[in-house]
Design a protein around this nucleic acid. Sequence first.
DNA 1: CACGATTCAGTTGTGCACAACTAAATGGCG
DNA 2: CGCCATTTAGTTGTGCACAACTGAATCGTG
Lengths: 158, 158
Amino acid sequence: MNRTGTPHPHQEEWLRLDRQICFSLHAAARAFNGVYRVILKDLGLTYPQYLVMLVLWEQGTLPVKKLGEHLRLDSGTLSPLLKRLESAGLVRRERSARDERSVEVGLTEEGAALRERALEVPRRIASATGFEVDEINDLRTRLDALTSALDAAALSGA
Amino acid sequence: MNRTGTPHPHQEEWLRLDRQICFSLHAAARAFNGVYRVILKDLGLTYPQYLVMLVLWEQGTLPVKKLGEHLRLDSGTLSPLLKRLESAGLVRRERSARDERSVEVGLTEEGAALRERALEVPRRIASATGFEVDEINDLRTRLDALTSALDAAALSGA
DNA sequence: CACGATTCAGTTGTGCACAACTAAATGGCG
DNA sequence: CGCCATTTAGTTGTGCACAACTGAATCGTG
């Protein structure tokens, strides 16, 4: 399809590389998820639920909107997830008195207490990865840069 | 809770770091997914469907089992996904004659032809990330190392 | 050959991600 | 004040991930 001099000589190669990088990121995310799944089972939390609890432990009560900003998740994901955490007795949801549109999400006694048991999770994860703190932080920095670039590209219409 | 000399002085800090690394990886995976979603919309593929097509373009016809090994996905994920690709007219599924348990997945004419249009995807992704090929490859290597460590840990019981 | 263990695809049920939408409350502007 | 645009949660529908299971085919061993 390219009689004279192949204007895109590396396209085939790029498709192969794309397969590799796509797969790597996808697999890494799922592998991470899998290890957390095992460790979090003891706490009765899924990985996304753990992320929500981490924010609540750190920030205290805050509206769904703010929670979504911290986690880059919208109400379509958070609403059912928070309902499940509420059913589990870990969080409390109540309409804000000042702004009836808003719902404040806070910890119950039980939810706050769960933090004690969660303290050992990071150590177990670190030992599972076998990575040093510096390596983890370096990887995190690169991933954040990647995410920023991707978000910017998505906004500008890919 | 720790009157004499705090045997775990860094646990609180680790919980904060865990929030950061969890969030970074989770966000990166979703941001990547989002950019691919936009670009793949033209091809009528989702990101996981694109991964399947990449394998088929590279490897040709192969059983569901092998496909799953390449992608680390099981039949619970692949079966419905492949049905959708079949409905879209991109792949063909048929029971192996040699082994009636196995289902061979292959490309249709249309599926094979789609490869031409997919050739530009990696370039668009690369420009979206703004990363150089070397950087991508370096990141990929680290992610693969992480995945290997996590898989090994998962097998040994976390 | 027979029969129990294994392999393979598919199904079911739960949970997350996200787009598109609804409904209620709020805020701004004429 | 009255009305409309915006903000905020929530709902609906589609698709993926994975655990647990089913059922059919195959294999191994006696």
